[in-house]
Each structure stands twice: as C-alpha cells, then as structure tokens.
Design a protein around this nucleic acid. Structure first.
Lengths: 215, 215
DNA sequence: TTGTACTTGTGAATTTGCTCACAATCCTGG
DNA sequence: CCAGGATTGTGAGCAAATTCACAAGTACAA
C-alpha cells in the first residue's frame, strides 16, 4: 500500500524528485534497464542515501540487491509529480519570453500544454503567437470557465506582475509560475514559484567574487 | 571592519539576499528612504529575524531604533552580490529562449550584459540576434580571450547541453546558468545553476495533487 | 543448499538552517 | 539631560534536512 504522501513532503525532496525524473528520462532513452542509487549519485551529484530517503516518502520502488527498474521508476515519479496526464496551462504575457515558452518543446513533451495566451496590449490582442490567438487579459476568467486550467504562468514586466496574479487567482488558478521579478501577494491556498534570471545570475556572480576576495 | 564573507555563507541566505535586493530596488523606486526588518517581512514573506541574520554574515547595515537606509542597503547588497559593476556574459543558443534573454531588459538594468551569442547551426551563424552577431560556437574560446567573460548561459536543447558546457569551461568560464534540462558535468571550480521550467511546473503540479488526494 | 557480493529502506546521529528573545543602541520630545 | 518607544545584531535553543550505518532482502555460483 502506498504511503500517505499528501502530508509533509519536504520541499527539497520535491525539487530533487524532479531532478531524478530528468535523469531517468535520459537513462530510459539510452536504453538502461536498471540503476542503483549509487549510480544516481554519480549522475546527479545527489547523495545515494538522500535519493533512497526521498523515495521512501512515497513508497518502495527498488529491490534490495538489484536496484531500480528505470522505466518503472520513471513512471512512478511521473505519477507522483502528476506529469503523467496532460495539464492545461494559461500564459499571461505575449512578449519575447512568452513566445519562447509557447515554442518550448520540452513543455509539451512533459505534458504541460499552454492552451491560452493573454496580454493587455491592444496591439497584440487578436494577433497570433505560434498557433494560439492572443486574448485580452480581461477575458481570462470567462475563458478559463471552459478550459478549467489550474496552472498559470506570468511572463510580464515586473510592474504588471501583481495585476496578472490577481487576474489568475480570480480565474480560479491554484498554482502560478512567476517570471516577473516581483514578490506576488496571493491567497494562502495558491502556490507560487518564482523564476528570476537576474537573481540566478547574481548568485553566480557572488560565487565568482569568492576567488577575488581571497587574499 | 567587514566580516570575512568569503567563507561559508549558506546557499539559502544567498538566494534570499537576491530577493531582498529585488524588494529594495522596488522600494527605492517608490521613494521610500528607510525600512525596518519587520517591514521587509511584510513585503517578502521572509521572517524578520532571518533577514537580520542573513545580513549579519556580511556586516552591520542597520541602525538600532531606526532601521535600514534603503538606498544604502541596496548598494551594499549589490556590492555583496557583485551586481554593482557590469558583468559581461556569454550566451550559447540563439533559439527562442536565447532571443528572449538577449532582449530581456532586466538583465541589462542589473548590470549583466550579454556581449556575445553563439550557436552551432550554420543557418544561424552570421545572422543577427537583436544587436549581436551570432558566432560559431567553435570560436568561443578565441573570442573570449578578448572579452574575458566569466559567466556563461546555456540555452540549447538538452542533448547539446553538455557540449555547450564543455566549450564554456574550455573558454575559461567560471559560472554557468543552465536552461537545458540536463545535469551538467563540470570541474569542481565551476559553479552551475540550473533553471528548468518543466521541473518548476512539475513541482506546482504536485501541489495541486494534494487537494485531490485528500479524501 | 550455502556463501558471497550487492543493494535497498530506514532509525539514529549529525549537520545545517531557522526562530526566539533580549541586551545594546538610537532618536525624539519634554 | 533623561525617559520612552522602536529596532538592530546575535547567542542559545529549536526544527529540519542530510548522512550514516546496518538489518533485511536478492541473485548467483558452486
């Protein structure tokens, strides 16, 4: 019987789970059938015991003395992370980043389908972004009544970020991937993850500095 | 005297530092002159004591009874994270994502300048991406002899990720921002940060699932 | 069947990170 | 100049996450 997984999985575990899945997809493509936790450590840099403990939050997936069946584990992780079924996703922001996201093959390959694009710029509304028509951001609630999407992506300039979030929340969205460099205020039951390119670069720049500050 | 900051700053602290900086830039734009740690908590959701302790790794920036001077703290954080001076950055991958990155105004505003773009597709080499000429990825080492860039961005399909990383390392790059969904193998003295859209969406999808598994 | 070489799953120990709580400091008004 | 109200910086205690270490399981060869 699978364990009760809906309660208290550490966030770091969750993030690593996604990493394992990436590695497993790779392995499956190369035709590897079986893998051990120590092999996972070699591939991902994540400690083998960590890997085993992470999995233990959700059940038992390996066989002592043997290891893990790559295909089986890949499917299990996909199920845990809910990337086994197609998820419809809304996108606000039809700029360069929005365009890159819609055209990004990895999303569709992993079952995330951007099904509607919104913008507040009247020069863009009505035009097409790849195979999608850009809609007025004001119509997002009514349009999502049909689509019933639960995930939204914000790819707008920072000053429009909070506004976009409000509209997504009003439209019934429960999870937001935010590319705007703004701290969003949303209700407690809405999950937000921020991706900030500049922050990432700043962290990298900090590490560079260590070399120089050494006397 | 500033503390020895080059030794053992927790990674979570570093990531939050970048968040504080974002908030401070915002505050500065709105003309706020002074701010307290509890106000930072209200803005960012990060515990006030956490904020103060994070700062304490690098020195003392506030005044008891008063708080922090917004402009002063902003500058201090910028200095700590080394975003005060312009950093030249190399980009590999002239696809949709690469294009979005070069056109992203936030990077330049925060002193990260993408100064060269590389690709391995001969249909793209020689053409222009915004104001930059796309160069052959094979020339990266020789070109970086002039530029002396220390940071590189990988924005290529996953199967080309490791190859791009190798070329960056060979060109003397010390820090890599990787958008390819691949686990890169690099020498110990090279820092890598991964940004994986699909992973982020998967983590969000997991959180959705909690609602449904509740009986 | 037994022994050997592996590998998992997990309680316990360790390490790391977070929060509390308070002395020390500072400004303002009287 | 002093009292009152506010806020910092940080040691100590607490919580969370990571790693260790080992019992239990498995395959295979002899």
């Amino acid at each position: 019987m699978p364990k009760n997984n809906s309660h208290k999985v550490p966030m770091p575990t969750l993030e690593r789970l996604a990493t394992y899945l990436t590695a497993l997809v790779d392995l499956a493509e190369r035709g590897t059938a079986t893998i051990s936790s120590s092999e996972i450590e070699r591939l991902t840099g994540i400690n083998a015991a960590q890997f085993r403990k992470d999995l233990s939050y959700f059940g038992e997936f390996g066989r002592p003395g043997i290891g893990y069946d790559v295909e089986e584990l890949r499917e299990s992780l996909a199920k845990i992370l809910k990337v086994e079924h197609t998820q419809p996703v809304l996108l606000i922001g039809a700029g360069n980043l929005g365009s890159a996201l819609v055209g990004f093959p990895g999303l569709r390959a992993q079952n995330f389908h951007i099904v509607a694009v919104f913008d507040n710029n009247y020069n863009k509304i009505g035009r097409r972004l790849w195979d999608l028509e850009i809609c007025d951001v004001e119509d997002i609630s009514s349009i999502n009544k049909d689509i019933q999407s639960r995930i939204g992506i914000i790819a707008v300039p920072s000053n429009a970020g909070q506004d976009a979030a409000n509209k997504l929340v009003a439209a019934g969205i429960e999870a937001i991937l935010n590319f705007a460099p703004t701290i969003l205020k949303v209700p407690d039951d809405v999950v937000v993850r921020n991706v900030d390119f500049v922050q990432e670069l700043a962290i990298l720049a900090f590490h560079l500095s260590e070399d120089k500050t050494a006397s």
